[in-house]
């Protein structure tokens, strides 16, 4: 039995709590982006693109048993860092768990600006799309 969505969110909050200034926090985020498991090129298709204004984000989802498994990628490394956290939190959970998730960690680690409605990235759409997949698989 894996960790619950909230247990993973708490882990992330703890990890980011180690950093005092923004630069360290962002270096960690960039590092997470670099370490994101590579997405299979076969899934980097037009249909999997989440339209953001500035950087492209690809998202693929499949059901493995009862669980939804996500793969994603982006051209921009900071977005990739955010994606990496979203996947860590939401992937490998049931559709019901994903649909019920309250992603409070983003605000707690001081990254909510990346979900602001500035058309600057596709993260808001990515979260919605992850939930759409969960709904489709439920």
């Amino acid at each position: 039995m894996g960790k619950s969505i909230n247990e993973i969110q708490e882990e992330l909050i703890e990890e980011f709590g180690l950093f005092e200034d923004w630069a360290d926090k962002y270096e960690y985020l960039i590092d997470l982006g670099k370490k994101l498991a590579p997405m299979s090129d076969a899934f980097k298709t037009e249909e999997n693109v989440i339209k953001g204004c500035q950087s492209r984000v690809w998202l693929h989802a499949e059901k493995q048993g009862d669980l939804v498994v996500f793969q994603a990628d982006s051209e921009a490394i900071i977005v990739k860092g955010m994606i990496s956290m979203l996947i860590r939190v939401l992937s490998n959970h049931t559709p019901a768990e994903i649909l019920a998730a309250d992603l409070y960690f983003i605000e707690q680690i001081g990254m909510s600006q990346h979900l602001a409605q500035t058309r600057s990235n596709g993260l808001v759409s990515m979260v919605k799309q992850m939930q759409h997949y969960a709904l489709a698989f439920s």
């Binding site: 923004w22 630069a23 204004c53 500035q54 921009a76 490394i77 900071i78 600057s120 990235n121």
Partner: peptide, 21 residues
């Protein structure tokens, strides 16, 4: 380097530029 990454980090330094198309 993707322009968006530069824009996000420069903003953390208090610098406003535009990135994108």
């Amino acid at each position: 380097v993707h322009p968006q990454d530069i824009g996000v980090l420069l903003d953390k330094f208090g610098i406003a530029i535009r990135t994108g198309h």
